[in-house]
Amino acid sequence: MNMKYALFVSIILGALLFLDISCKNDTPEAGKTTGHISFGFIHLVDGLPLEKDIMKYINAAVNTYEINQVMYFISDVTLHKSDGTTKLISDWTDIHYVDIDIPSTLTWDVYDDIDTGVYDSISFVFGITKEKNQSFRFVNPPEVNMMWPDILGGGYHYMMINGSWKDNENVIKSYAFHMGIGQLYKSNVIEVDSIYAFVQNYFSVKLPSSAFSVEENKTRNIEIIMNIDSWFKTPHIYDHTYWGGAIMQNQPAMQMAKENGFDVFTVGKIE
C-alpha cells in the first residue's frame, strides 16, 4: 500500500510541478491625468452651412456653381502647447477621412489619451504626406474610392469636390476640383508618357484661434470648419471657366488650390 500511496503522491506533485502558474505583475499606471478630444467637421459656403445640389453659390470669379460631393483627408493632427511640446494624434489612427455624405466620418472621436492642460493651437496636414500616401494603403470603401491612379503619381486623392458651374455662356458643366499628387509634363500635351516628375501637393494647416484645454476624464469637442468658398479666393481667384472641369492632370490649377488652402480651415465651437 505504501508504494501505491507513493505513486499517487508522485502524481499530485507532478501536477504541481507542471502547473507553473505564475502571478501577473501589474504595472501601475503612470501618475499623469488625461482626457479626450473629439473633432466635428463642419462645411460652410460663404459663412453658411453647405446646401448641396443647389446651383446657388457664386465664387470670386463670378462663377455660379453648386456642390454635390466633398471628400477629403486630413492627417498628422498635432496639438501644440505653449511650452513648445506637441502631441501628435497617432496612437490609433493618423489619417482621417471626411465625406459629407457619410455622417460617421463627420465626427472623429480620437482614441489617444490627451494629457490634461491648455493647448495653444491645432495643426494638421491637408491630404496625406508622401511617406504615407502609398497605393493600396486603403483597400476598403469609402477611402479606397479616393484612389489616385499610379500613372499620375499613385496614392490617394487628398480631396474631391465635385459639382457643376455655369460657364460664361450659361452652359452648365461639371467640375472635379480634385487634389492629389501633381505631374510635370515635358510638353504642353498632357500625356502620361511625357510625365517627368511628380509634385506633392499636401500642405500644413495651422488652425487660427484654436486654443483649448483638456480636463481629466472629459472629452473636449472641437469643430473644424472647411470654408469651401475659400478654395476659390485669396490669394488667387480660381475661375472654373478658365481651368475647366478636371484638374487632376493640371498642376498649375492644383498649385493654385494649394495656395488658396491656407485659410480654408477655421475652428468653430469648442465645448
Binding site: 496612437d91 490609433w92 489612427t93 489619417i95 493600396f136 494603403r137 483597400v139 476598403n140
Partner: peptide, 8 residues
C-alpha cells in the same frame, strides 16, 4: 492601430 499598419 491603423497608424501602424492598414489591412490589405
Amino acid at each position: 492601430p491603423s497608424s501602424v499598419i492598414m489591412p490589405a
